[in-house]
């Protein structure tokens, strides 16, 4: 179902949702949101379980690292205020602090994934152009660059090889191949823009794929942030 939502509406809904999550300090809300995100992903046709697992691993890792930081390096005032706030936290307030921090990160990540894994790049850009007034030039520049990704990474490898063959070893974060790449990108942007403009590209054009906004899109856009507010009220 999340696949079919208009990308602009989805962006706004999830963006506002994520900001609201920023002012949420209840682990229960965090967990529920993470679950909702997980549900979105499960029902999407654009991602598989296999793929999902590969993304979840690093997320759990980072989430764990936040847990330990929150637990071992908590701030005193925060614990104090939390102990007063949440009377239920009779157990270990430091542990709770860790749980809150790590579930918060988990929730952010699940919402994030349910955007990036379920949105088609062409649709997103078309929708931004049609609904969010993104300049035509910007939209198509993004699509063009995305479509050249594999060529760019090939070139990057080639420029590294070219250096090695000259007996100039390439270390990680070496700027030499990066410099060569920058030169190329300056040249490419020139050629590409000439090619596109000489094919008649400008702001005045039709678009074959029309992205529509339907009532359910609006419902998602407004409903999702409202749901977070609701959850917050419920648990506080």
């Amino acid at each position: 179902m999340i696949d079919a939502i208009n990308p602009t509406a989805k962006t706004i809904g999830l963006l506002v949702g994520s900001i609201l999550l920023g002012v949420t300090f209840q682990w229960q809300t965090n967990v529920l949101l993470a679950l909702i995100g997980f549900l979105f992903l499960l029902t999407s046709n654009r991602t598989s379980l296999n793929q999902l697992a590969r993304f979840l691993l690093p997320i759990l890792l980072i989430s764990a690292s936040y847990f330990f930081t929150g637990w071992l390096f908590h701030s005193e005032e925060n614990l104090l205020s939390m102990a007063v706030d949440t009377m239920t936290a009779a157990e270990n307030p430091a542990l709770l602090n860790g749980v809150t921090l790590s579930t918060r990160l988990l929730a952010f990540a699940m919402l994030g994934l349910s955007f990036s894994l379920t949105t088609d790049s062409n649709e997103l850009v078309y929708s931004f152009i049609q609904q969010a007034k993104m300049p035509m030039k910007m939209g198509y520049a993004i699509l063009t660059a995305l479509n050249l990704t594999s060529l760019i990474s090939q070139e990057y490898k080639k420029s590294k090889l070219a250096l090695q063959v000259r007996n100039l070893p390439v270390r990680p974060f070496d700027t030499k191949p990066l410099f060569t790449m920058m030169v190329r990108m300056v040249r490419w942007s020139d050629r590409l823009s000439l090619a596109m403009e000489s094919k008649g590209f400008s702001e005045q054009r039709t678009m074959k794929q029309q992205m529509k906004v339907r009532p359910q899109d609006i419902v998602f856009m407004i409903g999702f942030p409202l749901a977070i507010v609701g959850l917050n009220l419920l648990f506080s």
């Binding site: 198509y140 990108m185 590409l192 823009s193």
Partner: peptide
């Protein structure tokens, strides 16, 4: 257009 392309390419 060239400016936007440069930004996008460098981003990639």
């Amino acid at each position: 257009l060239r400016d936007y392309l440069l930004m996008a390419l460098i981003s990639v």
